Simulated assay, not measured.
Amino acid sequence: MRCVLLLKYFLPGEFVKDIFEITPEKLKERNVKGIITDLDNTLVEWDRPSATPKLIEWFKGMKENNIQVTIVSNNVEKRVKSFSDPLTIPFIYKARKPMGKAFRKAVKDMQLTKDDVVVIGDQLLTDVLGGNRNGFHTILVVPVASSDGAITRFNRKIERRIMNTLKRRGMIQWEEQTK
Rank of each mutant, 00 (worst) to 15 (best):
E159G: 01
S84A: 07
N74D: 10
V118A: 00
K8R: 13
V144D: 05
L166F: 12
C3Y: 15
L140P: 08
R169V: 04
A95Y: 14
S147W: 13
K17M: 04
E64W: 14
K54W: 14
R133V: 05
I36D: 08
F136M: 08
L5I: 11
V107D: 06
I158A: 01
T178K: 14
E159R: 09
D116T: 05
V16R: 14
K78Y: 14
G131D: 12
K179T: 05
K54I: 06
L11R: 14
T138E: 08
D115F: 04
W174P: 02
H137F: 08
T178E: 14
I71V: 11
R79E: 09
R160T: 03
N134F: 07
T42Q: 05
F20H: 11
I35K: 07
S50Y: 15
E77Q: 10
V128C: 02
R156I: 09
L6S: 02
R153A: 01
L87I: 13
Q177P: 06
T42N: 03
V72K: 14
R79D: 08
Q123P: 08
V76H: 12
K105M: 04
G34C: 01
T37L: 04
E25Q: 10
V80C: 01
N134T: 07
R104M: 02
N75M: 03
Q173R: 12
R133P: 09
K28N: 06
F10Y: 15
N41T: 09
G135E: 12
D85K: 09
R96V: 01
S147E: 12
I19F: 05
K101E: 12
G131P: 14
M171A: 01
V128H: 11
A150H: 08
M99P: 03
V107A: 00
T42I: 04
I71L: 04
G131R: 11
S82A: 01
K60T: 10
K157Y: 14
A145S: 10
I139R: 09
T70L: 03
K17W: 14
T152P: 06
G131W: 15
I22T: 04
A106M: 06
T138N: 05
E57G: 01
Y9Q: 05
R79T: 07
N41K: 08
I92L: 08
